[in-house]
Amino acid sequence: MAKHYDEIRRLGGEVAAVSFAKPERVRAFAEAHPLPFPVFSDPHMAGYRAFDLGRTSWREMLAPRVLWRYLKMMFRGWLPGRVDRDDDLLQLGGDFVLGRDGQLLFAHQSSEPTDRPPVNSLIQAVRRGAG
């Protein structure tokens, strides 16, 4: 997402990432891996619940198609980070675009660990919200 951040900013939008890691881990991560947008902490997962984000299963995590996608991500340079004792390895993520008056312009709740929406659909939603 970092490489698309400038385009989103040009459209008048902003990006924020949310992790369920505690603030001190988020701070250490942000210092080690500077991102152009802020990363916030949601250690009690209130946001994950509010946005109806689900959990996966070990069976799904270890499914060949999921492992294959992780392998492809690693070939592209992604490396999994350190796993902390507090990490919920089965929690799924999601992507949402909120409009100016609080309405939800786009919602994508991951159905499995590597499921992410196309970047173009996120940018289109930001464009709608900015228009």
Binding site: M1, I8, L11, G12, G13, E14, V15, A16, A17, V18, S19, F20, A21, R25, V26, F29, V39, F40, D42, G47, Y48, F51, L53, W78, L79, P80, G81, V83, D87, L89, Q91, L92, G93, G94, D95, F96, V97, L98, G99, R100, G102, L105, S110, P113, L122, A125, V126, R128, G129, A130
Partner: peptide
């Protein structure tokens, strides 16, 4: 604390699975 309502809009909010 930061209220989500205080963040600029339109806002792309990314809920991460992990920090990496």
């Amino acid at each position: 604390e930061l209220p989500i309502a205080s963040l600029p809009r339109p806002l792309l909010l990314i809920f991460l699975r992990h920090l990496a």
